[in-house]
């Protein structure tokens, strides 16, 4: 409707549309009316959980073409009832931030810059170093002959931001390898 028309006057528009308080449709622009929310365009919605603190707020992750396009609070969650704090509300940026690292980087001993490295090569190099360090610092028994069956050459830190299943595999693998210096944020 043309703004110059009498019927386009704000007050008239407001009452004609039933938007009595003037905070709804009567004050939207053409542009606003033409756009839709990202969530409506999503191909999929996955039920998820916020990755920051331990309250465990429910999240709904909206994705399109294998890309996360929006993350919202899950109103069904009895913990959070749909709410998210600034971090949880910003978590779409955690996924899509421009500074995110997506390729392996490598720094050689005494090196001054990063180099790129193929993921497969990196995995092989890490496995090789793991076994060497494990061997060099292996302890079969203590001074009294009691079994130790461990290596002190390898340590690990992290787990509180990972998944339970991941922590399980980490503990399982390191323990089988004899590495005992395994820790996470819970100690800090």
């Amino acid at each position: 409707m043309s703004r110059s028309s009498f019927l386009g006057w704000p007050v008239i528009r407001q009452f004609r549309s039933g938007d009595v308080t003037g905070r709804g449709r009567s004050v939207t622009s053409e542009r606003t009316r033409a756009i839709t929310s990202r969530t409506e365009e999503a191909d999929t919605v996955a039920q998820s959980v916020c990755p920051y603190c331990a309250v465990g707020c429910g999240q709904l992750v909206y994705a399109k073409d294998n890309r996360v396009i929006q993350i919202e609070g899950d109103p069904d969650s009895p913990v959070s009832r749909g709410r998210l704090c600034p971090k949880g509300a910003a978590s779409e940026q955690l996924v899509n931030q421009s500074g995110r690292l997506t390729r392996v980087l490598y720094r050689a001993p005494k090196g001054t810059e990063w180099q790129s490295l193929d993921l497969e090569t990196a995995m092989d190099m890490i496995a090789e170093r793991f076994l060497e360090s494990r061997r060099r610092h292996w302890e079969d028994r203590d001074a009294d002959g009691r079994p130790l069956r461990r290596t002190m050459g390898i340590a690990s830190l992290g787990g509180a931001t990972l998944d339970n299943e991941e922590n399980y595999l980490i503990k399982k693998l390191f323990t089988a390898a004899g590495a005992i210096q395994i820790e996470n944020q819970a100690r800090i």
């Binding site: 170093r129 793991f130 060497e132 360090s133 060099r136 610092h137 002190m152 050459g153 390898i154 340590a155 690990s156 830190l157 992290g158 787990g159 509180a160 931001t161 990972l162 980490i170 210096q181 996470n184 944020q185």
Partner: peptide, 12 residues
């Protein structure tokens, strides 16, 4: 005394 260190989602 420690040769190798894994840091997994933590920033010591």
């Amino acid at each position: 005394q420690v040769e190798g260190y894994f840091i997994l989602g933590q920033n010591p």
